[in-house]
Amino acid sequence: MSTIDPPDFDRRDRFADARVPTVRSVKLRRWMNNALGFYLPATIIALVMAFPLFWMLSLALKTNSQIFSYPPRLLETPLRWEHFVEIWSDPRMNIGIQTWNTLVYATVRTFMQVLLSAMAAFVLARYHFRGRNMIFYLVLATVMIPHEVMLVPLYLMVKAVPLAGGNDIWGTGGSGWLDTKAGLILPGILSGYSIFFLRQFFLTIPREVEEAARIDGCSEFAIFWRIAIPMSLPALTALGIFSFQFAWSDYTWPLVISTSEESRTLQLGLAMFSSHDGTDWAMLLTGAAISTLPLIALFVLLQRFIVTGINFGVGK
């Protein structure tokens, strides 16, 4: 894994050096501190946290009847790795197309969400004007209505998009964006959460930086594009990862909006393993494991950015 941080002698340790003379005892003490203060508790917690994940993987490697056998066994031999091959040709799921669809859905939605939220959050955080807080609170209020009740109104609106899917200018006569990637992606590209998130970050950029840029003759757009955006690149990455993951895991909206294979996503495919007649647990969990991998990879690759990314209120 590429995430292992290099050993680092941080300042506290140097502080300790000053008090304790011999290098060997310092090393030993530091080692003891790290082992008892970090590695031991972290390993125990990691085992507890990871056990359900391990369990999911072990279920994916069992047959359906082994899953229910009593007493429960951690692993059953032979391990059914073939599930991970079979799933690619399983008629219920169509995992190949669905992975592609989900990738398009999550990527486009994430980029648009980050861009548009950054624009709105920048103005809401950096400019002073009347009604600014009012607008912000209204934006925040929009996340307080459960998405489930909005399905029907949203669906009717997507169907009535003018001049799309055979619709006339009044939005009648055709199917609008129903069952299209546009209908899947576009209604969800902005949420109060993401504007809230980025606004919290933009608030923390020191005013002096902005003023200095103005004195240097920067345009307002350049302040956004050349200063605010690069300075908050970590926060944008963090938001990107979070929105990517939310889009990737989204279930109800894709469920109602997509009917054909061209717009169906992975979560819908997973749901196919559960039907009126019962659930195909092994395949469902195999699919779940596969659909989780890209998200874990993304986190592993970008966690540095997240960790230094969200920087609330400090440095103001």
Binding site: P7, M56, Q245, Q303
Partner: peptide, 21 residues
Amino acid sequence: LPFVGLFRTIFYMPVVTPLIA
């Protein structure tokens, strides 16, 4: 510290597993 990234990843993993599964 060495391997701290691994622990962070493990603690974060439940977040990304599909909820139904």
